[in-house]
Design a protein around this nucleic acid. Sequence first.
DNA 1: CATGTTTGTTAGTAAAGCTTACGAACTTAT
DNA 2: ATAAGTTCGTAAGCTTTACTAACAAACATG
Lengths: 374, 374
Amino acid sequence: MTALRPLRPSSKVLPVDARGHNRSLVLQTLYREGTRSRADIARETGLTRVTVSALVAELIADGLVVELGQREETRPGKPATLLDLDRSAFVIVGLDLSEHSVFTGALLDLDGAISARAEVALEGSTGDEAVEKVEALAARLIEQATAPVLGIGVGSPGVVDLGGVVLSAPNLGWNGVPLQSILADRFGVPVLVANDANAAVLAEHSFGGADSDAMLITIGHGVGAGLLLGGTPLFGSRFAAGEIGHVVVGTDGGAVCACGKRGCLETWLSIPNLIDRLEGEQGAARTAVLQEAGQRLGMSLAPVVGALDLSEVILSGPTELLDGPLMAATVETLRSRTMAEFHGSLTLRMTTLGADIVLRGAAVMVLSGQLGVS
Amino acid sequence: MTALRPLRPSSKVLPVDARGHNRSLVLQTLYREGTRSRADIARETGLTRVTVSALVAELIADGLVVELGQREETRPGKPATLLDLDRSAFVIVGLDLSEHSVFTGALLDLDGAISARAEVALEGSTGDEAVEKVEALAARLIEQATAPVLGIGVGSPGVVDLGGVVLSAPNLGWNGVPLQSILADRFGVPVLVANDANAAVLAEHSFGGADSDAMLITIGHGVGAGLLLGGTPLFGSRFAAGEIGHVVVGTDGGAVCACGKRGCLETWLSIPNLIDRLEGEQGAARTAVLQEAGQRLGMSLAPVVGALDLSEVILSGPTELLDGPLMAATVETLRSRTMAEFHGSLTLRMTTLGADIVLRGAAVMVLSGQLGVS
DNA sequence: CATGTTTGTTAGTAAAGCTTACGAACTTAT
DNA sequence: ATAAGTTCGTAAGCTTTACTAACAAACATG
């Protein structure tokens, strides 16, 4: 008889786990700050020079870190030996399954730069056929790799659990597809699978300058969101966090949605619906349609921004539709519906990463999972 | 030149830190599962019997754990020596500053049971005068303590940062009041200060059976919320997470709020406003007022529940107003505005902890901060 | 009564990071 | 030019941690 309900048991920590953490810490310092000496790393991490030397020796043996020779800068004392990540030592395979009619993929280096691309047309494939197309795409990219593959990252539409099983992706006809283990078995490298919007918000955090509390809205065939809270992605109790497309917005009806309800956010904001509404409209009428959509988005987001105290909301999707009256109306609605004094510094902007955002997010997943850097 | 923006540096981990973690793990096992032998703990934690013995010896020396004698149960092998937390070894001081005209406080044991109470009338005090009343209340409770004080937990209204500074609490006239250090300096024991709704959701998780993803709405003089995501409280980028009282709900105007906007959630739902609206109403008219308030709450919560994939929403406040037509309307609105297939198991209920919820949450903060149990 | 089981402890080992010390290589002051 | 001071990386030895192996104590069972 105890007053507390059981929590999932947290696990023991051995000294060897601490070692792994400190190894990642050294790696992260080099990754983020760039060229550094062993003594620099010791100062920045708080570890001793001795310990850093041992960890660096291990990283050099693993081929992750290289010595670059002595520091040029002239100052007293023995010159430092500079180190850096060997940013060409590995490549990462990133896959984006979120587009409507095509799977895209790329080879990325440790900095997230894209060195090769490939894609495969979906042609209406679903189920196993679609899985085979994912495998073929990955195989094609791995063939082109000029360095060992660190891992495969996948941004998939739908609901994905922590083990990389796609629980539900209606467009692809997937229900409980264990994509992670399928790819891991086939290619023998680490595989990480997540929802596309979650991947995107990670990319925006790592490469796009987003805060560690941010929300990224993907607007395309559907409407979804990825949430980053305290630097950690939010998955939700049923792995369905960010599924905001089918939340009803407003009290005044709205169009009937594919899901059966009336006035879902997607009926206002998804690109197909938006294009339908804009059909033939010009000038002020066109602006009015975009403003209405923006207001609806703002109304939907206001309670979330207030409840989570978000400082940054980012939009991803077709710039020509989103970046203008729509976004202006969203920010105006957000400000007028939340506490201005608290949210004075709330920013709303387009992603800076364009169409590659999911691919680069998939790479971040691998970097963070395999190297502990992110 | 690196592609990643700097993150706040995470810190090194020494073997001694791992030791502390494992010590907490043993403590947590005893706290949650109750009476256990060393061998039981070893099996449940994955640590060896040797290591557990060493950790238990330390905990016994600290007075946190006691031996209870041999297990009665008859089975082969040497009989086990049973252990348990010494649940009367320490007391916790919990303070609730969230009520409108009175500060309440209590002495709690390690199980969160209340053994003494005290309160002090606010009588309009603000600023330093209010701080002095907090100190007096704590002093009065500490005098009554029959065991060493493990720490002081405080649930305060307003915005509280991670260092226990009350950045803003308009009702008390507090702006940047370092309550944690004031109390720590005065009483020489660990002090933890957090927002009242955050404290409340912790209590509901520890003592009320709430899931590790839950949202607790406090409805009183104002309307606030505490969020628990993955078992961790959410604070937000400016420590203002949960401030949903001044989010505008609906598109049809509504009453003017103290904050200047029109149609804030508080204008529909705060207890003073609700009582005003109910003034003189009976029967169906009364029900209609409560239903309207419940619908407004549901409209506000729907985007949050959808975005966070919450499975549990809990209300705290006067049962006679909330637990009836209001709550029924809220759950109905929530279901009709979110994806039923995902949120089939969404539950909305009243807290089971009554008026002591903040006091007990304050105790959880101390338990979790000082013993690593929660 | 012999055998097997379970508990808690003792003894010894491996790993991790620490402190102390030192040689190498450089700048700066005399 | 020489001496002194500074900085870097490494070596040696220590402390802490949790591990394995082994054992005595205390019980049940055939």
